[in-house]
């Protein structure tokens, strides 16, 4: 599949027209042909990815994990720059995976449609990339995929196993730092897998995420290795228990 992206004018027209087009977003087919009957709303990129499909009729976590694996493996060659392109994800959401987003998120208000079909990260915030129904799958894969492991998605599975854990991590300032995300998840996995300890609970990972946010204000987390982040995270959780 050759990837396309929306033109800026088309993006703006769609985004500003969401309230007016609420009913169209409930239809079964993509709405772009209705809104742009003369076409010209997208352009072709030079990026070709493998064809793939997403489980549509589902709301459960297991299928989210499968969808991350399918999408990330097909689009693994995208660079973070390309994967930060809001026009690409908005095109995929409106043209290729319109039905998937409808089924997965059932967005029916202006806010929820803007969250899931668009990629509202223009104010310099990357949160929009984690809200869009399709880009979130790529970024979860990118941040947690570990090349060379027998199961390279083991941390993806942990991240998506609990929506609160996922939000606690990806909505922090350090969320675009793969080392930090892998370090934190590795610490949680290490504790969970050890017979010596109880599993890490919600209050602990929430507190850990806040702690690392404060840590990052006076210290350069990017300067630390995955192993060092893992050690800091593990020690913090175990210290909390004492």
């Amino acid at each position: 599949m050759k990837l396309k992206y929306l033109t800026e004018g088309a993006y703006e027209q769609l985004y500003k027209g969401v309230n007016k087009n609420l009913e169209l977003y409930k239809l079964k087919d993509s709405i772009t042909e209705t809104i742009f009957p003369q076409g010209g709303f997208s352009k072709e990129s030079s990026v070709v990815v493998d064809n793939f499909s997403l489980y549509e009729n589902t709301h459960n976590i297991e299928d989210d994990i499968i969808n991350v694996k399918n999408l990330y493996m097909s689009m693994k060659k995208l660079t973070p720059e390309q994967a930060s392109n809001v026009y690409l994800w908005t095109w995929l959401s409106h043209e290729v995976f319109f039905n998937y987003i409808q089924h997965r998120w059932n967005p029916d208000t202006e806010g929820s449609i803007k969250d899931r079909f668009f990629c509202d990260s223009f104010k310099g915030s990357r949160i929009g990339l984690f809200r869009n129904g399709i880009s979130r799958l790529w970024w979860y894969g990118y941040l947690t995929y570990q090349e060379g492991r027998s199961n390279p998605f083991v941390l993806t599975e942990l991240l998506l196993s609990n929506s609160d854990l996922c939000l606690s991590l990806v909505e922090r300032k350090f969320s675009m730092n793969k080392n930090v995300i892998v370090g934190i998840l590795s610490a949680i996995a290490e504790i969970n897998d050890s017979i010596e300890y109880e599993d890490v609970i919600m209050e602990e990972w929430r507190s850990l995420a806040k702690y690392l946010n404060r840590y990052g204000a006076v210290s350069m987390l990017d300067f630390l290795s995955v192993e060092e982040i893992q050690e800091i995270s593990k020690n913090y959780i175990l210290d909390m228990r004492n």
Binding site: P80, S84, M220
Partner: peptide, 17 residues
């Protein structure tokens, strides 16, 4: 101690020390 340059491109989510 080390002297470090932290590079960031918000448009592309690039960050590296």
């Amino acid at each position: 101690a080390k002297v470090v340059l932290y590079l960031e491109s918000k448009m592309t989510n690039y960050r590296k020390a």
